[in-house]
């Protein structure tokens, strides 16, 4: 465990908790893409199937449980409790265009052709594009609530910090994983224009609004 990975996990946890609290406190999921949250729930489910079979550490197991429960709770709040506030008119990104290619690619490019490994690879590929429905929703509505932009900033930072973690592990342990690395680069690149808007607008106290 190195500082980048720890900060990355922390940033990821903060993002997940910020989103859950935003929906719970404001009793509204306006501006949130339920489709992205479904994809994240699928990502955690397919990635953490080894939750009980492959014990790594208390930290690892407890974080996995927190991620899985929070992601399902978020999906439940969006499509269950607060579905009246769900923006289904704008949350229209076709997630099958993300699920099918990720599944096909997972069969073609993986480290080991075993069910757990293919599901892990699928979750890595899917996670790299899972934010697209959310970014699509923000671009369609042309703006995002400040709390939502903090959520996106924390979520984007997590994988950026993981890229630094992999750099660190490569030079210190000779460890590298091309599948996770290339997917992580794609995932982080997707946030670039958001990062620019966040730093140039939100940090100056303005609302995040996309140029019309």
């Amino acid at each position: 465990m190195n500082v980048f990975r720890f900060l990355g996990d922390l940033s990821h946890l903060v993002a997940i908790v910020i989103l859950l609290l935003k929906i719970w406190k404001t009793r509204s999921c306006s501006g949130i893409s339920g489709r992205s949250q479904i994809l994240f729930a699928i990502v955690f489910t397919t990635r953490y199937l080894d939750l009980f079979s492959n014990f790594i550490s208390v930290y690892n197991t407890s974080m996995k449980i927190v991620y899985i429960t929070c992601s399902y709770a978020t999906v439940y709040l969006i499509y269950g409790k607060f579905k009246a506030t769900y923006d289904f008119n704008h949350d229209t990104f076709r997630i099958e265009f993300l699920l099918v290619p990720s599944a096909i690619l997972a069969f073609l490019v993986n480290h080991d052709f075993s069910p757990l490994e293919i599901l892990w690879t699928f979750s890595i590929y899917l996670e790299s594009v899972a934010i697209l429905p959310q970014l699509f929703l923000v671009s369609k509505t042309g703006e995002a609530e400040t709390i939502t932009s903090h959520y996106l900033f924390a979520l984007g930072s997590y994988r950026l910090l993981y890229l630094l973690n992999w750099l660190w592990r490569y030079f210190s342990q000779g460890f590298y994983d091309l599948i996770a690395l290339l997917s992580g680069i794609l995932q982080t690149v997707l946030y670039c224009d958001f990062f620019y808007l966040y730093i140039s607008k939100v940090l100056k106290g303005k609302k995040l609004s996309l140029p019309a």
């Binding site: 990975r5 690892n60 991620y67 075993s114 892990w120």
Partner: peptide, 10 residues
């Protein structure tokens, strides 16, 4: 290189 299929990261 460490066995890549033992994923110790989240």
């Amino acid at each position: 290189v460490i066995a890549r299929t033992r994923h110790d990261e989240l």
